[in-house]
Design a protein around this nucleic acid. Structure first.
Lengths: 223, 223
DNA sequence: TTGCCCGGAATTGGATACAATGATGGGAGT
DNA sequence: ACTCCCATCATTGTATCCAATTCCGGGCAA
C-alpha cells in the first residue's frame, strides 16, 4: 500500500548501525554540537567500528551529521538557514516532480491519496498525532513513488524528506501545522485531478513553503 | 581566480583511490556494465580494500557507478534516460541557483565571467579543445561559487556537473557544441548584468537544455 | 604570570585476517 | 541427455590490529 521508501533492513551490521544512529539523532539523544566518537557508538550499537564508519559516511551525505574541520563528525546545531535551504530545495524539486508526475496520475492514485488525507483527518480529530504523521508520510511517499523511474530525483527528495523529519515531528504536534498540511494535501489532490503540470508545481511549492513557515514558527517559539 | 570546486587532495589513501577510480571511469577504462571487484581495484590503485570501499560508496552517491542487485557495484551502461534526467535536474537546480545569485552579482564577477568567455573563445579559435573545456569549467565554477553559502545546493550542482563530465568531454570536441556553449554563457552574462532573477533562471535553463541536446546528438552519432 | 613547545593520550585512517553470503560448476540421479 | 542439488570458490561484509594525526595539557623559559 504505502511507498517503498523505508524498508527496515537490519540484516547487515551496517544497516543496524545506520538505523540505530538515525533514530538516536532524530530523537535528540545526542546534544547538538556533540562529537561522534566511533568507538563509543560501536559499543552502543553493538557492532564494530567498520559498519559504524559506513553508516556515518552515509548519514553525512544525507545531512544528518556534519563533518568537522579536521576529522570526525558531529551533530549539527540547529540552523534556521540550513533548514530554510532544505525546505526551499524541496519546494523546487518536489514542485518539479509533481509537474512531471501530473500527466501520469490515474484515478486509483487520486483515490489512494484521498484515502490518506481522510485517515489523517480522522486521526487529527481524535488527537492521535502520531497517526497524522504516519498518513501524511504515506501521502508524500505515494507522490514520490510516481517518479520512481527518475532515480536521482527520487532519492534526492527522499533524502531531504528524511532530513526535515527532525523539524516536522515537532511541527505536527501543533494543531495549526497539521491543519495547514492537510489543507495543502487537498489542494494537491485537486490540482492533480485537474492535471495541469504548472498548477501542480505551484501548489506543491506553496505547500512546502507553508510547511517551512510552520517549522520556523515552531523552532522560534521553542526558545 | 577559479572556483573552489576541485582541490586535488591526494593526501589520504581514500582520496587517492577516489581520484584513481573517477579518472579511470571518466576516461572509459572500464567497459560499461563491468563489475568492480574491490580487491582488483585495490591492487591497481595501490591501496587496501578499506579506502577503495569508501571511494566506491562516494562514487555511487555521485552516480558514477551503480550498486548491483545483491552486492557490489558496476559501471553503468550509458543510458540516455539517466543522462536526460541529470541534465533536466541541472536545468532546474542551476536555474534556481542563478535566480538566487542574480541580486548579489557584482561588476567584478561580470568581468571575471566575461574574461573566461573570451579565453574560451580564443582557445576555440585556435583549436585547443582542452582549454575550451577548462575555461568553461571556470565559468561554471564561478557561478556556482556565488551560492556557496547554500551548501546543499552547492554540492548537488557540483556533483551533477561532475557526473555529466563523461558526456561533455566528448561534446565539446564538436565545434557546434562548443559554440552553443559559449553563446549560452554570453547570454547568461547578459541576463546577470540586467539582474532579473526570472530572466536568469530561464536563460540558465535553456543553456543547460541546449547542452543536453548536444550531448544527446553526440552519443547518438557515436554509434 | 604568560606564552610556547614538546610529549603523551585519544581518535581516526588504513591494512589484514576472518566470517558470511552469493555465484558457479560438476556430478549423480532420473 | 537433462536437471537439480551440493560443494567449492569468489567476493563482499565485519572485526581487529597497527599506524598516523590531532588534540590537550603540563612544564619551562622569558
Amino acid at each position: 500500500m504505502a511507498g517503498a521508501t523505508e524498508n527496515s533492513n537490519e540484516h547487515t551490521a551496517t544497516d543496524k548501525a545506520y538505523e540505530y544512529l538515525k533514530s538516536a539523532i532524530l530523537s535528540g539523544l545526542f546534544p547538538p554540537g556533540e562529537r561522534l566518537v566511533e568507538e563509543r557508538l560501536a559499543g552502543e550499537a553493538g557492532v564494530s567500528r567498520t559498519p559504524i564508519r559506513s553508516a556515518l559516511s552515509r548519514l553525512a551525505t544525507e545531512g544528518f551529521i556534519k563533518p568537522m574541520e579536521k576529522r570526525g563528525y558531529c551533530i549539527p546545531r540547529d540552523s534556521l538557514e540550513e533548514m530554510d535551504e532544505v525546505f526551499d530545495l524541496r519546494a523546487v524539486l518536489e514542485g518539479y516532480a509533481l509537474a512531471l508526475a501530473a500527466p501520469m496520475v490515474t484515478g486509483a492514485v487520486i483515490r489512494e491519496l484521498t484515502e490518506y488525507v481522510n485517515l489523517a483527518q480522522k486521526a487529527l480529530d481524535t488527537g492521535e498525532n502520531h497517526q497524522v504523521f504516519r498518513w501524511n508520510t504515506a501521502f508524500h511517499d505515494t507522490l514520490n513513488d510516481l517518479i520512481a523511474d527518475k532515480t536521482r530525483l527520487y532519492s534526492l527528495i527522499a533524502d531531504m524528506r528524511k532530513y526535515v523529519l527532525r523539524y516536522r515531528k515537532d511541527t505536527l504536534h501543533y494543531i495549526r501545522g497539521a491543519e495547514h498540511s492537510l489543507e495543502g494535501h487537498r489542494r494537491i489532490i485537486h490540482a492533480l485531478s485537474l492535471g495541469y503540470p504548472d498548477l501542480c508545481e505551484r501548489v506543491m511549492r506553496e505547500h512546502v513553503m507553508e510547511a517551512k513557515e510552520d517549522a520556523r514558527r515552531t523552532i522560534l517559539e521553542n526558545r
